[in-house]
Amino acid sequence: MRDYAKEVLEGSPRAAARLISWLEDEDPRALEHMERLHAHTGRAYVVGITGSPGAGKSTLTDKFTFALRKQGLTVGIVAVDPSSPFTGGAVLGDRVRMSRLAVDPGVFIRSMATRGFLGGLAKATGEVVKVLDAFGKDVIVIETVGVGQDEVDIIRLADTTCLVLVPGLGDTIQSMKAGVMEIADVFVINKADRPGADQLYAEVTSRVEQDAHIRERAWTPPVVKTVAVDDEGIDDLVEAIRSHRRFLEESGALEERRRRRAREETLQMIHGELFRRIRDRLTADGELEALVEAIAERRESPYRAVQDVLARWLRE
């Protein structure tokens, strides 16, 4: 058997690619390799790019990555697109805007389908980030799915989250659902060549100022104007992200964020593993079906059944 963890650490893109597939498929073979990679993670800086469909996230990712490459930094990109709930298939089209990065050995791009996972990411996105981190990428960019406004999972993975807004796409402050404005560490007003850009910029800026009055915040999100297709404003974006990073590092907030992430992740893994084990046992000996039968016939309540199952499990 191939030693994927070792190969990833030695920089083999093929090993990284295969390990990522296993993670997406929830193949248990990934586990031992991830276990060994863990000590080599935590070095990369993770940037999230989120916003409405067609806001220019991929174009920005391309330009941002190119700017980082000029500084000599290596970049991993994880681009997430939705799976069809009807067919399970997906068209992953983000690479179209990143063609020139395809043959750059300092860039590794992976497209991911959500496979039914909600929140704007795929279930395995966090794990994939770890692989690219251990693989040695300096910066990892996550492009989220561009649908609706409930996709705020990105803040759990990204050190800096950029929220991309566009004039004329209905991206007005009034239309924002509660909690969406709050995810931004950096606001990007893209397509600033379009009418309405100045107005949107003014709106967002004044909202950010208002927020600063209402609640004392250690970080005030900068608002950056870009025309991604023309490579305009990208230096400002790079600078905004860099200053947020500096803020996180100097204030100790980066450490705190990552600790919180580790805590959530650990609890989630315990949850997943416990669930898997109990489910496997219950289904293996037909007990689950018997329980379901009893519950459906109202001989047993699900509340009671859960307590019984857990009590038995915990005793063993």
Binding site: S83, S84, T87, G88, G89, A90, V91, L92, G93, R95, V96, S99, A102, S111, A113
Partner: peptide
């Protein structure tokens, strides 16, 4: 995609 595949369009 309609046939259930994951398609990377380049």
């Amino acid at each position: 995609a309609e046939a259930g595949m994951e398609v990377v369009y380049t």
